[in-house]
Nucleic acid binder design. Structure first.
Length: 258
DNA sequence: ATGTCTCAGGGACTGAGA
């Protein structure tokens, strides 16, 4: 059973790549971020024709998240309960799989822009609200996975040039502390449960030929509750879609649960 | 190297966000 996450940077532009990727990798669940479209423009027919159901929460131009699932998502919730936010950044649903019920939380966490920006303060508030809300969700749903674009590189080994990025947004100490706060809830970074090669990343800037030079960061993650983590058999980042014409700047992350 | 990509507004390009 496979669950995956991919920041597609416009679902309208990337839909053909998403449909191809679903056909090749056949995940049971795929979480998408940065849809950049309103719900009335969500390509539900094409996704259903590919054999998936969907729960989605979008808005014009920015943000937007979706959960694609082989089974019909149920108990769909939008946003972080208790945190008012006009930005559509989080959606949760329960899905049925061969391994039973899973609670899926799909998140597009704030970027923060730079550490002296108001957007950075919003990011830290958002992360604090997420953490407190998740504490209760984990009580309600012991089999929970938090997938998405975290916009946080948790450690220096997740950064191609840690000295250049030191104290910059995506790498700053408060952001990394917030990430460890999620781990402190009992969640486990699926990717780091396994031996991995060095210099594996999930995002590369469109500029500076960054992908070709592997100047990337690992900011897309799959965190698993203890009941799921013990059954996780693999976690990989699929760079192949990043090599296509007109790619997203992010690559998908996939976890295998056995 | 303010370097690329996407979207909206408006109807060519600029600005915002990432």
């Amino acid at each position: 059973m496979k669950i995956a996450t991919w920041n597609v940077n416009s679902l309208k532009v990337r839909l053909p790549q998403v449909l191809d990727w679903l056909a090749v990798r056949q995940p049971d669940v795929l979480c998408l971020q940065e849809l950049k479209l309103e719900d009335k423009a969500f390509p539900l027919a094409a996704i259903e024709a590919a054999g998936y159901r969907a729960a989605f929460s979008g808005q014009k131009t920015y943000n937007g998240v979706a959960i694609l699932s082989r089974s019909e998502p149920r108990n769909i919730e939008r946003g972080i309960v208790g945190f008012e936010d006009i930005q559509q950044r989080l959606i949760s649903a329960t899905v049925d799989t061969a391994l039973g019920e899973l609670r899926i939380v799909c998140a597009y966490m704030p970027n923060g822009q730079s550490i002296d920006s108001d957007k950075y303060q919003y990011k830290l508030r958002w992360l604090a609200a997420l953490t407190e809300w998740l504490r209760g969700e984990l009580q309600k749903y012991p089999r929970l996975a938090l997938l998405g674009d975290y916009n946080i590189a948790p450690e220096d080994r997740d950064v191609y040039d840690p000295s250049a990025w030191r104290d910059q947004v995506l790498c700053s100490a408060p952001e990394r502390t917030a990430f460890r706060g999620l781990i402190g809830l009992g969640l486990s970074d699926a990717f780091r449960r396994f031996e991995q090669p060095e210099n594996i990343f999930s995002w590369w800037d469109y500029r500076m030929m960054a992908f070709r030079r592997n100047m990337g960061l690992r900011i897309d993650h799959i965190l698993l509750s203890p009941a799921l983590a013990e059954h996780c058999a693999a976690c990989t980042i699929d760079k192949t879609p990043r090599k296509l014409e007109r790619p997203s700047d992010h690559a998908p992350v996939i976890a295998d649960i056995a």
